[in-house]
């Protein structure tokens, strides 16, 4: 399979990149790791006349801690980097776990978090962790910038709020409070190189090691046109003392928030049952981490 013809740009400053996007807009695509874009171009699903690489834009590939309160993650940071970064593993656990389950090592070495979010595949691995971590996305254009909460970012399969002249520059995530813990579970056929049939991320914050739940977020992927927050299930949990039975109920409610499809990877029925099971499991894992929280 051959790539269609296109012009290639490799700006070396953010400003140049934004100006190029401003000029070329709808005729251009941003290239990060290329693991989505180049596949689509080879399959002739996308035929941009210009491709703008962000490989040489400074700062795009950096993870910057903000005094313990937060972290800024460049859109170009790779899954491999996120999976092995100690700060991310420690405080933003669902993101590190998801990063370690994306594709396989060669893919992880290229795949960026920005590309994953911008590509907006309903089954993608990064959206649910970003949602339970309440990430904010920074979009910049030659004309200005805006911050979008990740929960408002996805519009449908392959669709986001990014305008053709905008670049996703970074994610900003506040550090979860004490006694927080999170997890991520992905269900696929194989142990690697999988597109999720269902995936779940959860974050739990406890009052204390043995206290009630003060905050919880659950996000589900591959079960609706965009990843979804299981808000009703979260409502059930807030203020409650965690228990297996409670988590099972949360899973049951979670199913109600989803509209999975039947395709060649699995049926709607099975996906629904798995939402229930995996939500319960993910909460259980998150709880264990929250209880084991260390300053």
């Amino acid at each position: 399979m051959l790539l269609p013809r296109f012009e290639y740009h490799e700006p070396t400053t953010l400003e140049d990149a934004l100006n190029l996007l401003h000029e070329l807009g709808g005729n251009a695509r941003v290239l990060a790791g290329g693991t989505d874009l180049l596949v689509k171009m080879k399959r002739k699903l996308e035929k941009p006349s210009h491709v703008i690489s962000v490989a040489r834009v400074p700062g795009m590939d950096q993870i910057i801690p903000r005094n313990g309160h937060a972290v800024t993650i460049g859109a170009g940071v790779t899954a491999a980097e996120l999976a092995r970064n100690e700060l991310v593993m420690d405080r933003f656990t669902p993101l590190a776990i998801a990063a370690g389950k994306l594709g396989a090592p060669p893919i992880r070495n290229r795949a960026s978090i920005g590309g994953n979010l911008a590509n907006a595949r309903p089954a993608a691995d990064f959206p649910p962790p970003c949602m339970v971590l309440n990430a904010t996305l920074k979009l910049k254009s030659a004309k200005g910038e805006r911050d979008i909460p990740v929960n408002d970012f996805f519009r449908g399969p392959g669709e986001t709020v990014i305008e053709p002249n905008e670049l996703l520059v970074s994610l900003h995530i506040e550090t979860p409070p004490p006694w927080s813990g999170g997890s991520y579970i992905k269900l696929g056929a194989r142990k690697a190189m999988e597109i999720s049939m269902v995936n779940v991320a959860a974050m739990i914050t406890l009052q204390s090691a043995d206290g009630p739940i003060v905050d919880v977020r659950i996000a589900l992927g591959a079960v609706a046109p965009t990843p979804v927050r299981a808000l009703a299930a979260e409502d059930l949990l807030v203020g409650a003392i965690p228990s297996e039975e409670l988590f099972r109920k949360a899973g049951e409610i979670g199913v109600g928030m989803c509209s999975p499809i039947t395709d060649h990877r699995g049926t709607m029925e099975y996906r629904c049952m798995m939402i229930e099971v995996l939500t319960k499991r993910c909460l259980t894992e998150a709880l264990a981490r929250a209880k084991a929280w260390k300053p």
Partner: peptide, 16 residues
């Protein structure tokens, strides 16, 4: 064929 690729036709990986 709807899965004529090694992404969608799933042979075992080293982890399997």
């Amino acid at each position: 064929i709807i899965n004529a690729s090694l992404g969608e036709y799933k042979i075992p990986t080293a982890l399997d």
